[in-house]
Design a protein around this nucleic acid. Structure first.
Lengths: 144, 144
DNA sequence: TTATTAATGGACAAAAAGGTCTTTTAGTTT
DNA sequence: AAACTAAAAGACCTTTTTGTCCATTAATAA
């Protein structure tokens, strides 16, 4: 569904938040291992997440990644827009430039509600809401 | 939503079928122009469609692409599986390997119905059903 | 202050996606 | 048969995605 960057970012951030909720501050080695993603690539992606202001990092011994609790929660939509852009969230399934109720593509009527559901989902859910739902062992967050 | 190959293939095939319904047999130059896709790339993709048995081609003057009316209609699912595989149709939105009702990812409950809708849509709709719905000028099938 | 730890930055590399170009093959028309 | 038309085949190229590697920077601990 999503591209690798989005997937790794999503899993990393949810993992970090999940650990933060237990007063832990994971580092990339741990994160990459737990979410089963390549470590160096995960490090690079998390670097971008830090630059985007989505999460904070602390260097040196005892360092790691930590969310700023005073900031508002991060919606999946914000994350997706930052990693792979709006393509998956807007535009018509048929790839038409001008596709609306008056000038619909052949998929318009069936596809609209699906796209709307996706948009609703990613606007409502946040890294934090997902982390709160993750109460079982995180090791199951294994990529396909 | 879909990758370029799927998009161009979908638009090409719907265009061809739409023209076939009017007893016309378009060639790649015309097809690529109408669906606004790169001609050489469209040619290569249509070549694959021919090899897959989705459509027939005729060489030489008056040639072009034509569907075999005796064959069953081609579902969007068949096309998608041939061009980009099952990734978009199955698997969990979170990228988890083991994600089911007993061991759900944090997105499982909300994402399941969406994925089901997508699967239903692509299983029910065919190149032919889309071509039949395309009763307006085909020029509007312009890529984003 | 020196060693150690852990994130950062940036160059580089491999693979996949997206696309071009030229020659060949197979038909049709004259 | 010769000329013409249009798809097929395949080599090649560009861009994007998905990574790796190593030197640097910043924080902590001894």
């Amino acid at each position: 569904m999503f591209n690798k960057e989005t997937e790794y970012a999503l899993r990393s951030l949810v993992y970090i938040q999940h650990q933060n909720y237990q007063s832990l501050r994971p580092g990339i080695e741990e994160i990459a291992k737990e979410i089963e993603a390549p470590q160096a690539y995960t490090a690079k992606i998390l670097q971008r997440m830090v630059r985007l202001g989505f999460v904070n990092s602390i260097k040196g011994k005892g360092g790691g990644f930590i969310f700023d609790e005073s900031k508002p929660e991060i919606t999946l939509k914000q994350l997706i827009l930052a990693t792979e852009g709006a393509k998956i969230l807007e535009g018509c399934g048929f790839g038409m430039k001008y596709c609306d109720a008056e000038n619909p593509c052949p998929l318009h009527d069936q596809f609209g509600p699906i796209r709307d559901s996706i948009n609703r989902l990613v606007s409502e859910e946040t890294i934090q809401s997902l982390a709160r739902k993750t109460n079982h062992a995180f090791k199951v967050l294994i990529n396909i």
